[in-house]
Nucleic acid binder design. Structure first.
Lengths: 228, 228
DNA sequence: TGACTTAATTATGAATTCAAAATTACGCTG
DNA sequence: CAGCGTAATTTTGAATTCATAATTAAGTCA
């Protein structure tokens, strides 16, 4: 019955693979917030049975991307203002810590890497290429995270970051906010180069709060229009 | 086939219930770190089939309590020094934030609650009742967490806390460390009463680092003896 | 006896099946 | 024809089944 076409998954554990495949679908809103997760369709699409798919959904639920309603199936969670106001402060505290630790452990080579990413981000900003900007932006935050040399911190940060990502992605920044964000990143780079942990921590904290405010603003503007 | 005795689980979703039941088994080391999880036995014990149990194991794995080895089953994770050195700083940052936020939102009634718990903890200390001490201690941290009014923070903290709990529980504190811990808690209460957020944050941060050091010390003393 | 092969057993991962719950479709009554 | 109640259908949750991988046991030969 099950065909092993190129589309079909067959490496490592199926449920783990499915988690990795479902996450992007939720992040880029192919599976829309507030909608029901079409179990049957997804099984066909990935060429798997319900068992591993449901296992994956349980994991995604514990990460907050999916909500399980007993006897009613799985639903893509909404990004609400309440959630944004909750998650960003936590993310801020974690990123601040990552900055602190990164300054202690980062190598010169890694700093050069961040510098290169930063330059690339500036170019994306100048070209008003939001997709590229977001992509590089994330790489920078990730590079700092990795420099912190703390796998637990990385995991925690990324889990929360993921939850905010689709909102952040959807939320078109205002011209003014975008400018400010770039300025903040300028300072982030400077702190990192100077290996000034406390300063970097404070900057990242502020950066996160500004992001929060920006996302909230966008959410509120959407309230009248449509739920994300 | 499946009997619905009082032992058998039947409320809400089975996998969720199983997560809640398996966690304590791992925390109190009934399922010993480093050992294989006896799937079959647990199915019999809880009167469920393998499907929901395996779903629960996937969730526990994403929380770091269990490690899944492809085609080799599920294993209880070890608490290593590397992990302790990673998790406590993250926990410290989160608890610091919880202190900060708690000072902003806590009610007088809640402060009285913490005061009562604190008094109870002192009594446990004076009676050298470590079990009671740990239990009340956790209640205090949880009360502060709840006063922070941030469900995401609560969830994140508790997930990490859980991972450290069995180590913390096993790690008999030295007389000196126990005394210091009580002093730290004295200060925590004072900061809370004064609603001094920054001070409480700093105190909790230091408290966590002292806990880390204490656990590491114990782990090292165990290295020669036996792996936990 | 001891290392190596191979067969038997067991455990795992995932598909399938089945009972129960929820949803939808239908028909009845006012 | 609108609202309610009941039957048919679909979906969900969980048990069972089945193929495959891993482990253990048995047997072979130096």
């Amino acid at each position: 019955m099950t065909l092993h076409t190129s589309q079909t998954i067959m490496r490592k554990s199926l449920h783990h693979e499915l988690v990795d495949r479902l996450q992007p679908l939720i992040i880029n809103s192919e599976l829309k917030p507030g909608t029901k997760i079409p179990e049957k369709q997804l099984c066909e699409r990935f060429g798997v049975s319900r068992t591993p798919l449901r296992e994956a959904l349980k994991v995604l639920a514990s990460d907050g991307l999916v909500r399980l309603e007993p006897n009613r199936g799985a639903w893509v969670t909404q990004v609400t203002q309440e959630e944004v106001d909750e998650v960003f402060p936590v993310l801020g505290a974690l990123e601040a810590l990552s900055g602190e630790l990164a300054c202690k452990h980062i190598t010169d080579a890694e700093i050069e890497e961040v510098r290169a990413l930063h330059a690339q981000m500036i170019r994306s900003y100048e070209n008003r290429d939001l997709d590229a900007y977001f992509s590089v932006n994330q790489k920078i935050h990730r590079a700092i995270l990795l420099a912190a040399r703390n796998a637990t911190l990385t995991t925690s940060c990324q889990a929360l970051s993921l939850r905010m990502q689709r909102a952040r992605y959807l939320a078109n920044m205002s011209e003014g906010r975008w400018y400010d964000a770039v300025q903040e990143h300028e300072k982030i780079l400077q702190c990192l180069v100077a290996r000034d942990g406390p300063n970097l921590a404070a900057t990242l904290l502020h950066h996160m709060d500004a992001k929060r405010a920006s996302v909230v603003k966008w959410l509120q503007s959407q309230e009248t229009t449509d739920a994300i």
